[in-house]
């Protein structure tokens, strides 16, 4: 009997411990979250509202760069490069989470403020997911072409290893001037079945994308990636992490009491496609949700 009673009290104790643990993990403690925005626009207000919903027990408030120095918070969540920089410059205490900036912008600020630590929630689609998308989209593709600028050589090398796991033959070419492709680049374009665009702002940017897409269309090649905006411009498909994905991930990170990494890859993503482009390049596309399920189903 005693044994049984003892077991009961142990169960009770365990319940209490879990309760305390939950309290300490932030469920009961209202953390102050400063949402750093360029200005208190309606857009910023809407984002705050959504973050409020995602973090119901926390205290989220909007902070503009001018207000940074006079305020304190447990978490600083920046929504642009300028607002992030204001927090870094003010050397604020508390953890800093950077949203909506590119990996390259983040690196630039790290170099500028070497003593300051912040966590970047990276929304750049990973090469693994983009390749999984290609596999799901066009299972018969064998040769993938990848172009990169000098600065992104490492990414291209990493991509080669990832390609092997998918059984793709990755053909890469460095492009120093997006307006002037050398023979190697033209040869990759000719040999490849499809082109994978990577996060490489020197190569893929609003100024160059037109020329690149026109060149690809003329060669009857489709571009996958680098991101959502390029799909709207004329790429055939891309993985991307949208605002909702960013919110989900940001809320998750804020609730995480563990050590924050320098870069946190957004685990949530969507797939976007350009049906019109696919049609004219004779690619049969399934709908975005089916493709997403396929990519997720494959474990990416």
């Amino acid at each position: 009997m005693e044994l049984v009673r003892g077991k009961d009290s142990f169960t009770m104790l365990r319940g209490w411990l879990i309760a305390i643990l939950l309290c300490c993990s932030g469920q009961a403690y209202a953390a102050s979250v400063a949402l750093l925005v360029d200005d208190a626009s309606e857009k910023a207000q809407r984002f705050k509202e959504h973050l409020d919903i995602a973090l119901p027990s926390d205290n989220v408030r909007l902070v503009t760069p001018e207000q940074v120095t006079s305020q304190s918070a447990d978490f600083w969540v920046s929504t642009s490069a300028a607002s992030l920089e204001s927090a870094l410059a003010a050397k604020k205490n508390g953890r800093i989470l950077a949203l909506f900036i590119s990996d390259n912008e983040a690196q630039g600020l790290r170099n500028k403020y070497p003593g300051q630590f912040f966590t970047l929630l990276s929304n750049s689609p990973t090469i693994v997911r983009q390749m999984a998308l290609i596999k799901s989209m066009s299972p018969h593709v064998e040769r993938i072409g990848l172009f990169y600028s000098r600065a992104q050589k490492k990414q291209a090398e990493d991509a080669a290893n990832i390609a092997k796991t998918f059984g793709f033959d990755l053909m890469t070419a460095q492009i120093d001037d997006p307006l002037e492709w050398d023979r190697n680049a033209l040869n990759v374009l000719k040999q490849a079945d499809i082109i994978l665009g990577i996060d490489d702002p020197e190569l893929y940017n609003p100024v160059t994308i037109r020329g690149i897409l026109m060149r690809l269309y003329r060669s009857n090649r489709a571009l996958v990636g680098p991101d959502k905006a390029f799909v709207k411009a004329g790429a055939v498909a891309s993985v991307y992490s949208g605002v909702s994905d960013t919110l989900k991930a940001a809320a998750g990170i804020i609730r995480d009491n563990g050590a924050w990494p320098a870069i946190y890859l957004n685990p949530y993503y969507q797939i976007t496609t350009n049906e019109q482009v696919a049609r004219s390049l004779h690619i049969s596309l399934e709908d975005e949700n089916t493709l997403k399920k396929k990519v997720e189903g494959a474990g990416y």
Partner: peptide
């Protein structure tokens, strides 16, 4: 309300579609 948040690249021109 998502408009504007994803355009961290700035305005990307929609290329003459294929």
């Amino acid at each position: 309300w998502e408009q504007g948040w994803n355009d961290d690249m700035g305005e990307i021109p929609v290329v003459l579609t294929a």
